[in-house]
Lab assay of single mutants.
Amino acid sequence: EIRVRVEKDPELGFSISGGVGGRGNPFRPDDDGIFVTRVQPEGPASKLLQPGDKIIQANGYSFINIEHGQAVSLLKTFQNTVELIIVREV
């Protein structure tokens, strides 16, 4: 597990896919977790996150067994800083 802090400027600078009942993700199709799919170059998350990172927690909210829409809404709700716990396959 890796813990990262992303400062919104003005957005977080990454996209996610997956989630329960979602269209899945390109990295682990059998896993309904939330995965980072795109990281904006030079964006707030560019040095912190990589495509394929699985987000398991954001600001204390579990991202395990969460629906895609709910994950997106939560990330939009947070002000300024988001603390993520991620799992990265090496």
Results as ranks from 00 to 15, higher is better:
Ala45Gly: 06
Pro10Val: 04
Asn65His: 10
Ser73Thr: 15
Arg5Trp: 10
Glu89Lys: 08
Pro44Phe: 04
Val82Ala: 05
Leu84Cys: 04
Asn80Phe: 07
Pro51Lys: 11
Pro26Ser: 09
Lys54Ala: 03
Gly13Arg: 02
Asp32Ala: 14
Asp9Arg: 12
Arg88Glu: 04
Ser62Cys: 09
Phe27Val: 08
Arg28Pro: 07
Gln40Val: 14
Glu7Thr: 15
Glu89Trp: 12
Leu12Lys: 03
Ala71Phe: 01
Gln40Asp: 15
Asp53Trp: 03
Phe35Gln: 03
Gly43Asn: 06
Asn59Glu: 07
Phe63Tyr: 04
Ile16Glu: 04
Val87Ser: 14
Ile16Gly: 00
Asp31Glu: 08
Gly24Glu: 09
Arg23Ser: 15
Pro26Arg: 10
His68Cys: 13
Phe35Gly: 01
Leu49Phe: 03
Tyr61Phe: 13
Asn25Phe: 06
Asp53Tyr: 02
Glu67Lys: 14
Ile55Lys: 02
Ser46Pro: 03
Pro51Gln: 08
Val20Glu: 07
Gly33Cys: 06
Gly19Tyr: 04
Gln40Thr: 13
Ile34His: 00
Glu11Gly: 10
Lys54Val: 06
Asp30Glu: 11
Tyr61Val: 15
Asn25His: 07
Asp32Glu: 13
Leu48Asn: 15
Ile16Phe: 10
Gly22Ala: 10
Asn59Met: 04
Ala58Phe: 01
Thr81Cys: 13
Ile16Leu: 05
Pro41Glu: 15
Ile86Ser: 02
Phe27Lys: 08
Gln79Ala: 12
Asp30Pro: 06
Asn59Pro: 01
Ser15Gly: 07
Val82Pro: 01
Glu1Phe: 06
Glu89Thr: 09
Asn25Gln: 11
Arg3Thr: 12
Pro41Phe: 05
Ile55Val: 07
Val90Ala: 15
Asp53Gly: 01
Gly43Arg: 07
Ile56Thr: 07
Leu84Ile: 07
Ile86Gln: 00
Val39Glu: 01
Asn59Gly: 12
Thr77Asp: 09
Asp32Lys: 15
Ile86Gly: 00
Ile66Thr: 04
Val4Tyr: 01
Arg28His: 13
Arg88Tyr: 00
Asn65Leu: 04
His68Asn: 07
Val39Ile: 07
Ile16Met: 06
Gly19Phe: 04
Glu42Thr: 10
Gly22Arg: 10
Ile66Tyr: 03
Ile85Trp: 09
Phe14His: 05
Ser17Glu: 05
Val72Thr: 13
Leu75Ala: 01
Asp32Leu: 08
Ile55Phe: 02
Ile64Lys: 13
Arg3Phe: 15
Lys54Glu: 04
Ile34Lys: 02
Gly13Ala: 04
Val20Asn: 08
Pro41Tyr: 05
Val36His: 00
Leu12Phe: 14
Arg38Pro: 00
Pro26Gly: 08
Pro44His: 09
Phe35Ala: 00
Phe63Thr: 04
Asn80Thr: 13
Val87Glu: 11
Lys47Pro: 09
Leu84Phe: 13
Leu84Met: 14
Val39Asn: 00
Ile2Thr: 05
Asp30Gly: 13
Gly18Phe: 02
Ala45Thr: 11
Ser73Val: 06
Ile64Val: 15
Asn65Ser: 10
Glu83Val: 04
Ile56Ser: 05
Asn59Lys: 01
Ala45Glu: 04
Pro29Met: 12
Ile16Lys: 03
Gly69His: 13
Glu89Asn: 15
Val20Leu: 15
Gln70Asp: 12
Glu1Ala: 05
Lys47Leu: 08
Ile64Trp: 11
Lys76Met: 09
Glu67Gly: 11
Arg28Ala: 14
Gly18His: 04
Leu74Val: 07
Phe35Cys: 03
Lys47Asn: 12
Ser46Val: 13
Glu89Val: 07
Val4Gln: 01
Asn25Arg: 07
Ser17Met: 06
Arg23Met: 14
Lys76Ser: 14
Leu75Asp: 01
Gly33Trp: 01
Pro44Arg: 06
Val39Trp: 04
Val4Lys: 00
Gly13Lys: 03
Val6Tyr: 06
Asn25Ala: 07
Val82Thr: 04
Ile2Lys: 08
Glu11Trp: 07
Ile86Pro: 00
Glu11Asp: 11
Ile34Asp: 02
Gly43His: 10
Gly13His: 02
Ile56Cys: 06
Gln40Trp: 13
Val90Met: 13
Ile86Met: 04
Arg38Phe: 14
Gly69Pro: 10
Val72Leu: 14
Ile56Gly: 00
Gln79Tyr: 07
Ser73Leu: 08
Leu12Trp: 08
Ile2Cys: 03
Val6Met: 08
Gly69Ala: 11
Asn65Val: 02
Thr77Ser: 14
Pro41Cys: 07
Leu49Gly: 02
Ile85Lys: 14
Ser15Ile: 08
Ile34Gly: 03
Pro29Ala: 14
Asp32Tyr: 08
Arg5Asn: 13
Asn65Ala: 09
Gly52Met: 05
Ile56Arg: 05
Phe35Ile: 08
Val36Gln: 00
Thr81Ser: 13
Glu67Thr: 15
Pro44Ala: 10
Ile34Thr: 03
Gln50Leu: 14
Glu7Asp: 12
Gly19Pro: 06
Val72Gly: 06
Ser15Leu: 09
Glu11Val: 08
Phe14Asn: 03
Glu1Arg: 07
Arg23Leu: 11
Ser73Asp: 14
Asp30Lys: 15
Phe35Asn: 00
Val90Asn: 15
Ile55Pro: 01
Arg5Lys: 13
Phe78Glu: 10
Thr81Gly: 08
Phe14Ala: 00
Glu7Gly: 07
Arg3Ser: 09
Asn59Cys: 06
Gly19Thr: 04
Val90Pro: 11
Ile66Ala: 05
Ile66Arg: 05
Pro10Arg: 08
Leu12Asp: 00
Val39Asp: 00
Pro26Met: 12
Arg38Gly: 10
His68Thr: 08
Gln57Gly: 10
Glu89Ser: 09
Pro41Val: 08
Ile55Arg: 02
Gly22Gln: 10
Glu83Trp: 05
Val20Ser: 13
Val36Ile: 10
Arg3Lys: 13
Pro10Met: 04
Leu84Asn: 01
Leu84Lys: 01
Arg28Val: 13
Ser62Leu: 04
Asn80Gly: 12
Val72Phe: 09
Ser17Val: 12
Ile55Leu: 07
Gly24Ile: 14
Asp32Asn: 10
Leu75Trp: 04
Phe35His: 04
Phe78Tyr: 07
Phe27Leu: 10
Phe27Pro: 11
Pro44Asn: 15
Leu12Val: 08
Gly24Tyr: 11
Asn59Leu: 01
Pro10Glu: 05
Phe27Asp: 14
His68Ala: 12
Gly69Lys: 15
Leu75Ser: 02
Leu12His: 10
Phe63Arg: 00
Thr81Ile: 10
Leu84His: 02
Glu89Ala: 12
Arg28Glu: 10
Glu7His: 15
Val39Tyr: 01
Gly43Ile: 02
Gln70Lys: 15
Gly19Cys: 03
Gly22Cys: 09
Ser73Ile: 06
Lys76Gly: 11
Tyr61Leu: 12
Gly21Gln: 06
Thr81Asn: 09
Thr37Ile: 09
Ser62Tyr: 03
Ser17Pro: 03
Lys76Thr: 12
Tyr61Met: 15
Glu1Ile: 11
Arg28Met: 08
Gly43Lys: 11
Phe63Lys: 00
Ala71Val: 03
Phe27His: 10
Asp53Ser: 01
Asp31Ser: 09
Lys54Ile: 04
Phe63Gly: 01
Gly18Glu: 04
Gln70Tyr: 10
Glu89Leu: 07
Asp53Arg: 02
Leu48Gln: 08
Arg38Ile: 15
Lys54His: 05
Leu49Asp: 00
Glu1Trp: 08
Ala45Pro: 04
Pro26Tyr: 07
Val82Asp: 02
Lys8Ser: 09
Pro41Gly: 07
Ala71Asn: 00
Asn25Met: 09
Pro51Ile: 07
Ile64Tyr: 10
Lys54Thr: 04
Val87Ala: 14
Arg28Tyr: 15
Ala71Arg: 00
Glu89Cys: 06
Leu84Val: 05
Val87Gln: 15
Val82Lys: 03
Val72Gln: 14
Val6Gly: 00
Thr77Gly: 15
